[in-house]
Amino acid sequence: MLYAPLPMHIPDGFLSVLVSLVLWAATILVVGYSLRRVGQDLGERQAPLMGVLAAAIFAGQMLNFTVAGGTSGHLMGAAIATILLGPWAAILVLTTVVGVQALVFQDGGLLVLGANIFNMGIVGVAVSYFVYRTFQRLANGKPWGIFVGGFIAAWASIFIAALAVALQLAFSGTSPANIALPAMGGIHALIGLGEGLITVGALAFLYATRRDLVTAGEGQVKASSAVWVAGLLIALALAIASPLASAHPDGLEWVAEQRGFLDAAREPLYNVIPDYVLPGIANESLATILAGILGALIVFFIALGVAYTRRKRGTAS
């Protein structure tokens, strides 16, 4: 219950270091820019509003409703945050939520935190914003734009973010594209319906009680065509790349080439010590066994030391 149930928080070990670092770089750039933008828009109100809303999104992820067969619908919150706060503030709120989930609750890894913030914060928010704004313009101020737009924005934020996760796994060589993409996409196309229902429910409640938040909220005032275009591009890129990559897993061949390139770069390093595993050890399984013995000894002596200091502390007090 305390953990976001979406299989979308990538743990450590599932992304290659290259992919993790590239996404960290992208995330740092976007979050840094968002901090500046939100600072201009909200001024000193920023810290309390963002902090408390991040807590609300985190707590809101506990709210669930039963669907069928023991499964339940939950909230991720990218769409509702975008609709209420506008894209830049929503990115900060989701960065905080995903960051605390990783730092404190191990919901998602630390090295891959950049990727997780990118998927849920940046991709989720940009796509929500693009869909929601588009429907707002189509509806031309009529309320159906809020609800239909909100539902589809919430669904798309989950679905597209899941495609991003699957592509990153494929690039890392962790999961083959032709399986990961349909699987992640299919599951999240269903999960997204739950997100959509909750988002519409929340919007309906807010529309009835505080219409000003929904119709004149920060998301409306601070219209940003750059984010709209970014959302369009992200959605298009992932929607086009995904079927391509899953139909032709060989299309990821250039990644393999990159891997080959990295291996080649590593070759001279390896040649420094040719045919030579460890001083005096020629066998790989022997090396593993030795490592095991060494490791067991380390742990044994640490345990001994801890037990000793504990006893000393016990007698001292």
Binding site: L75, I198, G201, A202, L206
Partner: peptide, 10 residues
């Protein structure tokens, strides 16, 4: 559930 989430945000 959505109404509850809206309530929480408000």
């Amino acid at each position: 559930a959505g109404g509850m989430a809206g309530n929480l945000f408000l």
